[in-house]
Design a protein around this nucleic acid. Structure first.
Lengths: 113, 113
DNA sequence: CCTTTGATTAAGAAATAACTTAATTACCTA
DNA sequence: TAGGTAATTAAGTTATTTCTTAATCAAAGG
């Protein structure tokens, strides 16, 4: 989850995912769409792959990249459900937080006036 | 959108949103839940506020923070729709990308064998 | 009016992330 | 096997984040 959100924090990486949502592409085809160097794109691709957002397959000389939709959908939807639930069933992150929430040793803040 | 994803890339900031999904809290109450310094938390809060994910209101001495659900939901859902559409209506980011996509000056990669 | 409390701003140090060029690996083909 | 292309790894630099302490601002309250 940390890896997914970290991966999505880069505009270039989000663009790569958008490209791959239309078609499988080779590393070179992806790199050609950006003005940065090939190794830089390669590094972005490994961030995406480590986050489980893309998968690669070597075919001959070429490395083909494809989008892994499941992980993206599950992570973002899961987080949304967690933080903005429609009916509120306390899931993962906010649940553990709520459970362990230490009452702070602070003064009571005023109600509204 | 950049700001939203950038804000979500930090685990601490995601936790803050999770706290605020349960209740409105003052800056001090939020800071008390983390082991980092108060100014550090204050900076995280301004990242979240600049991204439009939280709103603050000063009441007396205290600054109360609350979650802004709309922006979170719209941004994440919008991006999901964009990259992982069920029916594929080409929206914002991937649409502009698809429109401007320069055919790379690459060799044709082999089909599969 | 002075002190305390909540919170943010300022300045600077330390850790991370991103990019570049050069080198390397792997595969293909004449 | 030599040469060329695709891609990644390595090494080093620059830029960006993130954190800390100290200082400042603002509201309460004796």
């Amino acid at each position: 989850m940390q890896r997914v959100f970290e991966a999505l924090s880069s505009s270039i990486r989000r663009q790569i995912l958008a490209y791959l949502s239309h078609a499988e592409l080779t590393a070179g085809e992806i790199a050609a769409r950006f003005s940065i160097s090939k190794p830089a794109v390669s590094q972005h691709l490994s961030v995406l792959e480590n986050a489980g957002l893309v998968a690669s397959e070597k075919r001959g000389q070429y490395v083909h990249y494809r989008l892994v939709e499941d992980n993206l959908v599950n992570t973002l939807n899961g987080y949304l459900q967690d933080v903005c639930p429609v009916s509120r069933p306390l899931k993962s992150e906010s649940a553990s937080i709520a459970a362990s929430a230490p009452r702070p040793p602070e003064d009571q803040p005023p109600a509204s006036t």
